[in-house]
Nucleic acid binder design. Structure first.
Lengths: 342, 342
DNA sequence: CTGAAAGCGCTTACAG
DNA sequence: CTGAAAGCGCTTACAG
């Protein structure tokens, strides 16, 4: 299977030309005499030379033609999450357009995360889903390569791509809590521990996942404006953004008699709808619910939700990580109002 | 953001040691005097040196510490498909264990596919979902690097990882078609065109996607044994392995009065169940149906299915692509019989 | 249209 | 415990 490596020099020697002429045959075929080109290609095929070694080329050219996506979770999780998939699809589209590779770098808070990030042969990084204190952030921003961070946190040396989660949460809470007596939140994980639990008015500022934190802050903003004390707000926290896994925490909210739930994603909102269905409750009369992302299923389920394009945000992150210096503006969001809120 | 690059030589000079001593500090810290190690680290931090350049290291060591996954479809599709996700999760697990990177290389039959595969800085390849005639197969097997192909085709220079799709299809058809008067197949795509259509007894040997072909052959095997003429068998072909997109083709089978459907994946089987539900038909009395993969939802839906572990197959492919020479045996499958067949 | 030369940044087996 | 030297395979601006 692995034959002795054939190099450009071998081809050159056999052709009686210099290595650089062979190099030109691959990189600037237009600058080479047609006959030379033909001979070189012929000899290359004969010798089993498959073109310039990508690593040597990268070293010489000082760029890798690849982009690294740092995933703040197990790869399997990233693939399970519908929004992560949309985001990654957007990244991949840009990679295709620009002919660059896509390197996945899952991290889990382990010791070697930094080393794995550092030693990836990439020209720029995208960071998806991380916590404020992630040591990987310092590593990735210290490499002298462009970095895009999705969702947060904002750190020096990286460009942030995110909607205004706080403002969208405030908007959504206003719609969802209208006419409710017992509002509640079904929250994405607070931190990497991913411990499912039911809290009451947790301190939002202390939540390490930026997206979760901002959305919680936005909900609290609304509460204060509406004269509700956030300190009494039931907040159920799930371990994962998964419709079925979230059922237990949705149940927990029904157990405390919630009649309006801001869920931090459509998946979590679906879990609330599922739980309501099982209990024979009607939506939104008995329970109002809303989510984020306007998932394809949200239409089918009649779910009110904050629409945003994770795909476009993936594209934006990829362009940043590729060093595209175009001026950018904050991604937009809009409430899509359906039948799940009053 | 991008400071002038600091090299190992810079650190060495500033420390008054040779570059190789600095190299040893990163690669064999145990062989360096503690005081030297401390100084080198101090100076490195001071200068903003972040450790050996990965590309230069790869060139010198002659391996990349990364593995390429060639996807025979758009990246977004790969992420949408539950089985692709399981497979990739298995690949990723091995990558984590071995500390190697994971390179995604989507291909779509375009001209530049070969070049993109060839120029990936990886030590081995995994090929997921391709057709017999894919030119990428020749490229990837000619590189002198280990190659694992999932599903098929079997080609020289690559190791094949797949269940015996034909045998499993024969088994499943026997279970599903028992007692039926109008058996039918809901098929995965035949080729990259991914044209949805309804055929009657198509020539199985001519189907370019190996998995589809083998499963169709297996169904035909059963038909012949049961005295059914495969040439009369309705075979609806979907464009994508997607539950909702497949509804139209599921409907097409109901329109030709099918009362037993071998669906080539659980997703497609779910589409049949959905269609039956919409028509108020009962399963399996009015329509028997079965699929492949034993998706987590298959239990919920009471679906008879061929169970196989795509996760383990992902692991196996990764080990092959990493050059692990352990002897391998064909992955196993087993029919999980539930209420959807008679 | 083609070549001589320098160098991308590192690692390794060996000697001391 | 540390260093001199060779070399991984290629590309580039320049000269001819």
């Amino acid at each position: 299977m692995s034959s002795p490596r054939v190099t450009m020099a071998d081809v050159a020697r056999r052709c009686g030309v210099s290595p650089m002429t062979v190099s030109y045959c691959y990189n600037r075929p237009d600058r080479v005499a047609p006959e030379t080109l033909r001979r070189v290609r012929e000899v290359a095929a004969e010798l089993g030379y498959h073109g310039p070694d990508p690593t040597a080329r990268s070293l010489r050219r000082r760029h890798n033609g690849a982009l690294g996506v740092v995933l703040g979770e197990h790869l399997a999780y990233a693939f399970e999450d519908p929004q992560a998939r949309r985001f990654l699809a957007g990244v991949a589209e840009v990679c295709r357009e620009r002919g660059v590779g896509l390197n996945l770098i899952p991290t889990t808070g382990a010791e070697q995360d930094g080393e794995r990030v550092r030693s990836a042969a990439v020209d720029g990084y995208i960071v998806w889903t991380t916590v404020d204190t992630d040591p990987v952030l310092e590593v990735v921003t210290g490499l002298g390569k462009p970095v895009a961070i999705h969702g947060g946190p904002a750190v020096p040396g990286a460009e942030l791509v995110t909607i205004d989660n706080r403002a969208s949460a405030r908007d959504l809470a206003a719609r969802t809590f209208a006419g409710a007596r017992r509002p509640a939140v079904l929250s994405l994980p607070f931190d990497r521990d991913r411990e499912p639990r039911l809290e009451t008015g947790p301190v939002a500022e202390a939540v390490p996942f930026p997206v979760t934190r901002e959305r919680l802050l936005g909900v609290y903003d609304h509460c204060r404006e509406a004269g509700l004390d956030p300190r009494g707000l039931p907040v159920a926290v799930v371990a994962r953004n998964d419709r079925y896994e979230a059922e237990a925490m949705a149940d927990a909210l029904f157990d405390v008699r919630a009649d309006a739930v801001v869920a931090m994603s459509d998946q979590l909102a679906f879990a609330v709808l599922d739980a309501a269905r099982r209990r024979g409750l009607s939506v939104p009369a008995d329970i109002a619910v809303a989510g984020w992302d306007d998932d394809p299923d949200a239409g089918r389920e009649g779910l009110t939700t904050i629409a945003q394009s994770l795909f476009d945000q993936g594209r934006a992150c990829a362009l940043i990580a590729l060093g595209d210096g175009a001026p950018r503006r904050e991604p937009g969001w809009a409430a899509t109002v359906r039948a799940s809120t009053r």
